[in-house]
Design a protein around this nucleic acid. Structure first.
Lengths: 132, 132
DNA sequence: GACAAATGATACAATTATGGTATCATTACT
DNA sequence: AGTAATGATACCATAATTGTATCATTTGTC
């Protein structure tokens, strides 16, 4: 029942660190060292963030990563979606066919309520709000 | 990011069904048939619920399961804990040693807030409240 | 231009969690 | 005695997660 997986966690830590460097280009090796996180894994994560337009990368010597947008514009739900897919607490296991009660299912309704709250809260968290 | 795993889900369905039988002894084979759920897996699940004192089992021919207590006294958090362990959304991946910010971590604080809400809501759900 | 230091892309591997099966022992009703 | 049920438990399959390894490409520096 974890909300945040390890790669999301690493990603957030890295983003925080990069944000605090205020535009300075940060290499994976520096990040891995500072965050004490496995370097090849972190590298893969940052490459994904680059592809998704959250980081911007600079190749070649002296290269590395910078934020692609302001910390106030990076929502942790963005990051979560990148690494964890659609954000749903719900997902009925027995699909329509097997579970004829799907629409009247009380549990489902309660979970949807919880889900709405959780998503609401998460949507209010930006990278910026983690740094203040 | 799922709140409820499959075995919890199966368990809840089974418990609902058993509750609706109002004391009649229900066998695994009947349950598996009605719920359209794999029988050996369901059996294992019910055995666990028996060990945990949520169901009571009767062996031998004509045997099966009945609720060990009233539906109003069975909380879905009980069931979740049985199959999913401690209910925490939190769990910092980098433990104290690696993450020196653990206590001041803003993200952690926000997640704890969310966690409290979620647990509060879940704690209000009993088997009974799913049946009404 | 050669070299070194960085990322890009991608394939592969290890570990863990989840979901599920199989089997033998035990109990109890008929 | 036979049968229909659960108890206990070992095993297996699959998928997700968490990584590693490697080769290609880019770019700054000498």
């Amino acid at each position: 029942m974890k909300l945040i997986t390890r790669n999301t966690d690493y990603a957030l830590r890295a983003l925080c660190f990069i944000a605090q460097c205020r535009g300075r280009v940060v290499s994976v090796s520096e990040l891995a060292l500072k965050l004490r996180v496995p370097q090849p894994f972190l590298r893969k994560i940052l490459q994904v963030l680059n592809r998704k337009g959250i980081l911007r990368s600079l190749k070649g010597q002296g290269g590395g990563f910078v934020l692609a947008k302001g910390p106030g514009k990076i929502f942790i739900t963005d990051i979560m979606r990148v690494f964890q897919g659609k954000l749903r607490l719900n997902e009925c296991f027995l699909k329509k066919l097997a579970c004829p009660h799907r629409n009247s299912c009380r549990l489902r309704k309660k979970i949807i309520k919880i889900e709405n709250y959780v998503l609401g809260e998460l949507n209010s968290i930006t990278l910026g709000s983690l740094l203040e």
